[in-house]
Design a protein around this nucleic acid. Structure first.
Length: 418
DNA sequence: TCTGGGGTCCTCTCTCAA
DNA sequence: TCTGTTGAGAGAGGACCC
């Protein structure tokens, strides 16, 4: 059996690189993209900024302290989405088996394309050059027989940060069949997918620092320490056993919106308005995906970062803003907001196509409840024609007009509040 | 005045029914 | 009828990823 040929393509400093492409005066400067408010975080930064110790997920205030002269830009989710589509269009000219991990990262299974386009390393180099020539962005590509190895290889291909700009990396790194363990075992165990801060802390107690150290630990010891699933999974990865396939059409299992507020909320009245807004946003996305969900979950994060979730499952799937808001509102009613709520989220899971069967109460002649499903689809239609702010729940009309929640809004934290 | 948003998956606990 | 066991499902929380 011929081995699989898996590519992992990872764009270099994607959001920041897009901003530099759009504004060439930024070239060569430390540029940080992300939340600009007090509660924001860094989404991406150029290699010039990384040389100052800035990295993604770092609080923006900390990044400002590290590099006060950096250019700080709010993210533009829609623009990055447009660039991402162009990059993925290039991928799809080589194989339909493209699994997007995020806007800037994907796995490609090109096992069936080698006869047409040449071997894996050749395809990787061509894709990298084409993405640069056609879209203007650099990427790093890993080529291997599994997703795990391809991902680690693309990391190894990355540039190195320096204050005068990125020092180019290999661009393409290949792990040939049979050489997986030699490549894998010297790497830090933290580089394995699934080893975060908590798992690393537990592994460190066993003296595990590299993947090779992990491979030497008996699987029984790992399953006792980490649980059966994670223990076995990591043991397999440490021996380069990774059977995961490239999945081109993954269906979402949940759809949610959450938002960190510029200031904490302490009362139910204002939080219930946010519930309506978030529910409206979730419902709109559900309908555009042709889905509904049985379980509604709220997430509440308090000022001290303590986070709770509360969920409720309905007998039939719900898809409308008023239905989701009613369930989420009931869940919120049992939460005491007095300590101060900094984040609120609403999500729907157990997704399925909407249940279009006529309910008994809908069939009754003296129907008292509005027909929310039909009304919601009408709202979608109006918004498509006249924009998001044309129509929405009355509860969301404030001084600044209608406040509608959309994906990518306040993606990296609330804007500054002065 | 530290810590976003949108996800997935796993584990633990509790409840309920067989 | 009572009690113990077991498995499924719901709910909650945590870890992890980009």
């Amino acid at each position: 059996m011929t081995p699989n040929v898996i590519l992992h393509v990872d764009m270099d400093a994607f959001y920041a690189a897009v901003e530099v492409l759009e504004d060439p005066s930024l070239r060569g400067r430390p540029v940080v993209v992300g939340g600009t408010g007090r509660r924001g975080v860094v989404a991406a930064c150029t290699y010039e900024a990384r040389a100052y110790g800035i990295h993604s997920a770092m609080p923006s205030v900390q990044a400002r302290r590290l590099c006060p002269h950096a250019v700080f830009l709010p993210g533009r989710h829609d623009v990055y989405g447009q660039y991402s589509r162009r990059v993925f269009d290039v991928f799809k000219t080589y194989t339909p088996l493209v699994e997007g991990i995020s806007l800037d990262e994907a796995f490609l299974d090109v096992s069936g394309a080698t006869r047409l386009f040449g071997d894996g390393p050749g395809i990787a180099a061509t894709i990298r050059t084409r993405v640069h020539d056609e879209v203007g962005l650099w990427s790093s590509v890993g080529v291997a027989t599994s997703k795990l190895m391809a991902k680690l290889a693309s990391e190894a291909a990355k540039p190195t940060p320096s204050r005068s700009g990125a020092i180019p990396g290999a661009g393409v790194v290949v792990v040939p069949p049979g050489e997986e363990l030699a490549f894998l075992h010297p790497r830090p165990v933290r580089s394995l997918w699934g080893v975060g801060p908590a798992t690393f802390a537990r592994l460190e107690r066993f003296g595990v620092v590299t993947v090779g150290d992990l491979a030497a630990v008996p699987v029984d010891t790992l399953t006792t320490a980490l649980g059966p699933s994670l223990g076995r999974h990591l043991h397999d990865l440490a021996w380069a056993r990774d059977e995961r396939r490239v999945e081109a059409d993954r269906r979402p299992k949940s759809i949610s919106h959450e938002e960190t507020f510029a200031r904490n909320h302490h009362d139910h009245v204002s939080l219930q308005k946010e519930i309506v807004r978030l529910s409206d946003g979730v419902a709109s996305r559900l309908r555009s995906a042709g889905l509904a969900g049985r379980t509604v979950t709220i997430k509440v994060r308090f000022g001290d970062f303590r986070t709770i979730t509360r969920s409720h499952s309905e007998g039939a799937p719900v898809e409308t803003g008023p239905d989701i808001a009613r369930i989420a509102g009931n869940l919120l009613a049992n939460v005491d907001p007095a300590p101060g709520v900094r984040l609120l989220g609403v999500g729907v899971s157990q997704l399925a196509p909407p249940d279009r069967q006529l309910r008994l109460d809908e069939a009754l002649p003296e129907q008292a409840e509005p027909d929310w499903p039909r009304a919601s689809h009408a709202v979608d239609e109006v918004r498509r024609k006249f924009g998001d702010k044309a129509l929405g729940p009355a509860a969301l009309v404030g001084d600044g007009g209608l406040r509608v929640k959309r994906p990518g809004d306040t993606q990296w934290g609330p804007p500054g509040d002065g």
